[in-house]
Design a protein around this nucleic acid. Sequence first.
DNA 1: ACTCGATCCTAGCATCGCTAGACAAGTGAG
DNA 2: CTCACTTGTCTAGCGATGCTAGGATCGAGT
Lengths: 192, 192
Amino acid sequence: MSVQERKERERASRERLIVATARELAEQQGWDAVTTRRLAERIEYSQPVLYSHFRGKREIIGAVALEGAAEMAAALRAATSAADGPRARVTALARAYLDFAERNPAVYDAMFQLDGGLAFAEEDTPEPLKDGFAALLETLAEVAGDGVHPALFTEVFWAALHGLATLTRAGRLPPAEAERRVELLVSRLAVV
Amino acid sequence: MSVQERKERERASRERLIVATARELAEQQGWDAVTTRRLAERIEYSQPVLYSHFRGKREIIGAVALEGAAEMAAALRAATSAADGPRARVTALARAYLDFAERNPAVYDAMFQLDGGLAFAEEDTPEPLKDGFAALLETLAEVAGDGVHPALFTEVFWAALHGLATLTRAGRLPPAEAERRVELLVSRLAVV
DNA sequence: ACTCGATCCTAGCATCGCTAGACAAGTGAG
DNA sequence: CTCACTTGTCTAGCGATGCTAGGATCGAGT
């Protein structure tokens, strides 16, 4: 019985290695460079091993996305808990969100840009994703304003952040004035 | 001399055919289905012909994006010119933007999601893209509010629309309440 | 009518995600 | 301790991708 447990531990450990390596490779050289061959070589196993853990490349991306969602949720909560007052919390939230996207571009892509085979806004949405939305909601509900559904407000605010994050990183928006855009967004959307 | 002109016309015509076919194929079956082989087969030429017009698949995507940008700019201007008053114009603008994204998902991807090798917010930004931004700016400048740079306001508003468009289409936002999100966005961001 | 240059196609390269089948290592029974 | 067998891993290969080299073909101008 103990033998089997050891094997399961080793399997789980190797699965974590795969996800961590995929993420590392993606951050270093972009997702295009994350091929099953390169990934297999880095973890020092052959390609088919990947398919004994994941159904395919999509699922590996999905695993990175889930890991990232959990981290992001933690980062958002850490940022907001250090701020005083609703308005300051929202600003901190927005900055933390954009900061996470900027510092973890590959993970952010896995979460929102690429197809990781994940469901959203539905019954079977994975827990980390729901929790990420919850982290946003906790702070944003305070400033939704009267008669506005907090979830709806969160969706709009989130969409704005997502737009800023992606357009900035794609070179569509000059990075210089990022901070002023955040201030404008918060001052207009948030009802204090 | 006339012979050469005819050849140039034919070349230009074939180039339009390539772009139109790529777009059509992408809208029908998604960009993944747009392979150089399939595209070549549809235009009834061999693969290498594509490379005598474009440097590679990226440039073809870029060409579709430019075509789309011009169309979108026209659609935005048509929508705003039919509305009375700044507030109504902004609402019409937002609806037209999201409507375009929803009805031309592949083109929208070419413009903002995929790598079409296009420059943005820089010196050598192609004209249709600058004009698309200009179309947004024309209407949004009216409601930027005192002391807010119109271009900065446009960037934020645009980012919010882009976020709504992409998140909705990716299934991240329930489509049911799209209209209410637009109303909330406009009512908060626009200063009338 | 003939030459020669432009134009286009056949064939192929390296790489991709993914899988079948051979092979080895470790397991538990006798 | 030996041996069949399950479990796990690897080698090799499939079809498809973007892209390119080199030969064939066609038409224009002398």
